[in-house]
Design a protein around this nucleic acid. Sequence first.
DNA 1: AATAGAAACATACGGAGCGTATGTCAATTT
DNA 2: AAATTGACATACGCTCCGTATGTTTCTATT
Lengths: 198, 198
Amino acid sequence: MAAKRRAQMVEETRAKLIQAARKAFATKGYAAASMDELTAEAGLTRGALYHNFGDKKGLLQAVIGQIDAEMVARMRAAQNQAETRWLGFLAEGVAYIEMALEPEIQRIMLLDGPAVLGDPSLWPNQTACLRATMQTIQALIDEGTVTPMDAEAAARLINGAALNASLWIAAADDPHAVFAKAVEAFRYLAVGLLQTER
Amino acid sequence: MAAKRRAQMVEETRAKLIQAARKAFATKGYAAASMDELTAEAGLTRGALYHNFGDKKGLLQAVIGQIDAEMVARMRAAQNQAETRWLGFLAEGVAYIEMALEPEIQRIMLLDGPAVLGDPSLWPNQTACLRATMQTIQALIDEGTVTPMDAEAAARLINGAALNASLWIAAADDPHAVFAKAVEAFRYLAVGLLQTER
DNA sequence: AATAGAAACATACGGAGCGTATGTCAATTT
DNA sequence: AAATTGACATACGCTCCGTATGTTTCTATT
């Protein structure tokens, strides 16, 4: 074993713990996940966990931070692939709904996260995600594509609608059919809220 | 003490336990609430709890059922006070946002409930609440007030938007100012989604 | 280069809480 | 009036979290 830098070793153990935690939280849920099993699966003990993350909530925060960064990246990718900013905005919403379909994201980000850490809009990274949506909306207002209004209010309502849509889809018997209906309604909602003259 | 009916006694103990649980869940959160303390405050022991509700989740279900019934009643009241069905629909949404401002409803119905029991749309009473919204929307479509579309999809998106709006308000530094902005945006959203010709 | 110090992680301990198994008493039934 | 069932209390075990302590390895200083 080559002599690695201390910081690198630490980063590896943190990554291993977060990896194991993601898996356990996603499958068993936060409350039912045992920290002994977690750490054992990562080849460590609870000592490493409490040293690196403080407590169980700290570990959840780290997991959420990682997932959230991935979500932001995917939303930006959807935005960048679109031809216009407006289409990109719609694509972001659809991408959000798609992501929220994954059990891991459902369980950790939408159910356990808020219950344990409180309102997601106060999380640092989620704020970043919301901020991105707000900036897009503001840009759309500035370029005259959408009706002037409070960008933050619009972003929050649209995000909320998308979130609930994905929860609906995930609980449905026929997710694909419901997904189509939800996306269609979401487009109507976005157009109606942002492009209606008042 | 007069000889009471057996069933009546049972109903009283159930009510006492639910009452104590509401208080504890609302203030400490579901996970941190101790069933020993709960039952002691109600003048009982954990034996009564497990006998009546099966387990801790069962107690939460009972609490949620009670709160949800109250919420439905308040939404119906808002609907009935309005002059037209459409105004009543908007009033329902505002009433929902107002209710979700209360810490008890936030904590139990919006945070812990979904985390412990899963997606709210699968809860029996919540389904009733959603069904009421759906029926209102369908009636509005039938009478020609709103644009024809999938009533369930519309109801879910609007409910989701209202839900997120209330979470936003509750976490804000100045809830009153944010409340005004959220309600305004919510009206725009409802009008835009439901009354835009396509 | 050697030693002192600190960081990273493991081990050990105590306490709290949930669920179940068992016990007791009152009420209903026959 | 005796028996049986139901409502609730008591007692126990098990798991799990958080902390306190121990050990080893890396880093820093001279």
